[in-house]
Design a protein around this nucleic acid. Structure first.
Length: 286
DNA sequence: GGTTCTCTGCCGC
DNA sequence: GCGGCAGAGAACC
């Protein structure tokens, strides 16, 4: 997938951390910090910091998130809830139920019943920035995608929600799209629709921070990293921006390089430039 | 309730 | 860039 127009070069650290992530995913009891340190050839202290700087989360957070993902994947097809969570690596039933609300946003049984067949309405329209796809789950807007080719936008939506039941061409929903297009043309008015954002804990923190940047203002990636309390996680912030599923509603276009130059944009750098120009004009004029 | 592991601020090389 | 300590907190038994 095309994520960043000019992604920074991959550092040796990033490669090493990527290896460790794969190791965490495959090891059966999750590896301890000390074990990971041996594998990386670093001290546990330093490894911990490096890992967090690259990914934005600690190794144990990463392991927890991966375990949670495994349950989510296993739950819909599992023989029982208990079987699914034991398979995913939870030691016991009670351990999982303690955090199930955080992991699933609902009880495990409800998730198993309804989560897999999540219904998503979508429509594709045109805005001054080109083609736009808006999608909405029962909880809120879950995707706003921009591009040149409507077919590619639809394929992107399918990739993001492979198990969902996608419903297009709904007349009622066209109104919602018109609403979102209006918001794209004038972001300052705000989007009065609820968002349904799915992401890792770290991504959600970043997206929340982005939403606090008002139209007409910008921030650097390290500003955002500081704002969420992980000042060294600059690269991870950039990745989270690139993973933003709702263009403009989570204003990742307001994040610039530290020297103020425009860095990459998931939906094309020209769109980022256009959005920023428009917002700056609205801020000074009128 | 004690132990072990995790996490972070601070410092030294 | 890297290692290590101190001390607090969470997880585990």
């Amino acid at each position: 997938m095309h994520v960043d127009d000019n992604a920074p070069p991959v550092s040796p650290h990033a490669c090493m951390v990527a290896d460790l992530c794969r190791h965490i995913e495959h090891a059966e009891p999750p590896p301890t910090l000390a074990e990971l340190a041996v594998k990386a050839g670093l001290s546990p202290y330093h490894l911990h910091r490096v890992f967090k700087a690259v990914t934005g989360v600690t190794p144990s957070d990463y392991a927890r998130a991966h375990r949670a993902r495994r349950v989510r994947d296993a739950l819909p097809g599992a023989a029982s809830v208990t079987q699914a969570l034991l398979d995913a690596g939870y030691a016991s039933n009670s351990r999982f139920y303690e955090e199930s609300n955080e992991v699933l946003g609902m009880t495990p049984t409800a998730y198993r019943a309804g989560g897999a067949a999540m219904q998503i309405r979508f429509a594709i329209g045109q805005s001054s920035l080109g083609a736009i796809l808006v999608a909405q789950s029962t909880r809120g807007v879950c995707a706003i995608l921009l591009g040149d080719d409507p077919d590619l936008l639809l394929r992107d939506l399918q990739d993001r929600f492979p198990k969902a039941h996608l419903i297009g061409g709904d007349a009622d929903f066209e109104q919602t799209v018109a609403h979102v297009v209006g918001f794209i043309e004038a972001p300052r008015i705000g989007l009065s629709l609820p968002l349904d954002l799915q992401g890792t804990a770290f991504q959600l923190r970043v997206w929340q921070a982005l939403r606090s940047i008002p139209a007409g203002q910008t921030a650097s990636y390290s500003d955002v990293a500081q704002r969420i309390g992980s000042p060294s996680a600059v690269r991870a912030v950039a990745s989270a921006c690139a993973a933003n599923p709702v263009a403009v509603a989570v204003p990742c276009h307001r994040v610039l390089r530290i020297d103020g130059s425009i860095s990459g944009y998931r939906w094309g750098i020209e769109r980022k430039r256009a959005l920023l120009l428009r917002e700056a004009a609205a801020a000074t004029g009128a």
